[in-house]
Amino acid sequence: MKQIIITTALLSLSACARFGFGQPNDVGPVVGGSTAVIAAPDLPEATEQEVAAVAPDPVLTSAPPPPKAAKTQEALDTTTAEQRAQAAAPVTPAAQSKLLGTTIASLGSPSEPGFWLKTPLVKVETAGRVTNKANGKSSAVTLIPIDGPVTGGSRMSLPAMRLIEASLTDLTEVDVTLGS
């Protein structure tokens, strides 16, 4: 029964994000911590051709599925320390990141392993980075397209949510950039 209540609450929050209810005011990113390098407003916007030209990183999505009996964050997050370090590695100044947009993310399926963001901001699977606007923490992710308007909400993997120190029960505003 508890799982049904939690699932219903998360789906409700996701619907609120999709339709723009309860979204925080855009106050711009807070750059801080070791993983935020460039504030998103300073980035050029990406074109569809640029998005299609960037291949997703299979290392970020290659974690095994969690065991069926997993109930805690630690048990559900099957990524390795090396994968977490790679996802958290700061963007080098030479990297040419392009802004895809800002989205409100909720927790995606905790049973889907790896670092990913399912978002209407992309039309093809590609490599990207999400930056938590509240604290500046970022993670490399695989961007996976979903149907909906670009203003719709997104769903983020448990490991990515943990890495950017986002609340698993709240909606989190993130900047989404192309490349890792």
Rank of each mutant, 00 (worst) to 15 (best):
S62G: 09
R129V: 04
A55W: 03
S106T: 06
T131Y: 12
S14T: 00
E50M: 14
M1G: 14
P64Y: 02
Q73F: 12
K68R: 05
R129L: 11
T126R: 00
Q73M: 02
L121A: 06
A134T: 01
P67I: 03
S14Y: 12
P120L: 04
R129T: 01
K2P: 00
T35A: 07
I146T: 15
S34C: 02
T80V: 06
A127R: 02
P113M: 12
L100H: 02
P66Q: 04
P145L: 09
T78R: 13
T103W: 11
P93T: 06
K2E: 13
A81H: 08
I38K: 15
D26Y: 11
A52E: 05
P65C: 01
V27E: 13
I104A: 07
P110M: 05
A140I: 01
N132S: 12
N135K: 05
P66A: 09
A89M: 14
T7V: 11
T102F: 14
A105I: 05
A81V: 08
L100I: 05
G101S: 05
P110I: 00
G136T: 07
E48S: 12
E125S: 13
T78Q: 11
I4P: 10
P29T: 14
F21K: 09
V59A: 12
G128F: 10
T126D: 02
S14M: 04
I5D: 13
P58T: 04
K2C: 00
T47M: 10
A89K: 15
G101T: 09
A105W: 02
T126I: 01
Q3P: 05
L11D: 09
A39C: 08
G108N: 05
A88E: 11
G33V: 06
S97N: 03
N132P: 03
V27L: 13
D42T: 15
S97H: 09
A53I: 01
V51H: 14
P113S: 13
K118R: 05
A75C: 03
K118Y: 01
A9T: 04
P145S: 08
T7M: 10
K118G: 01
T103N: 06
T61V: 14
G128H: 10
G114R: 09
V124W: 02
P41S: 13
G32I: 02
L100G: 03
E48C: 00
Q96H: 14
L76K: 09
A52S: 14
Q23K: 07
K123E: 13
S14E: 10
T79L: 08
S14A: 15
F115H: 07
L60I: 02
L60N: 04
A69D: 11
T102W: 09
P65V: 03
E48K: 01
T102R: 15
V124I: 09
I38N: 05
A39G: 12
A127E: 10
A94P: 00
I6T: 10
S109V: 06
K68T: 02
P29F: 11
P67F: 07
T126N: 03
P145H: 13
S109W: 04
K71F: 09
E82T: 14
L60A: 02
A81Y: 10
V124D: 06
A40H: 10
T92Y: 02
A36G: 11
T131K: 04
Q73I: 11
R129I: 03
S12H: 07
W116E: 01
A134N: 14
W116F: 06
K68Q: 06
S109D: 15
T7W: 11
S14L: 07
L99R: 15
S138H: 07
D57L: 08
A36L: 10
M1V: 11
L143S: 02
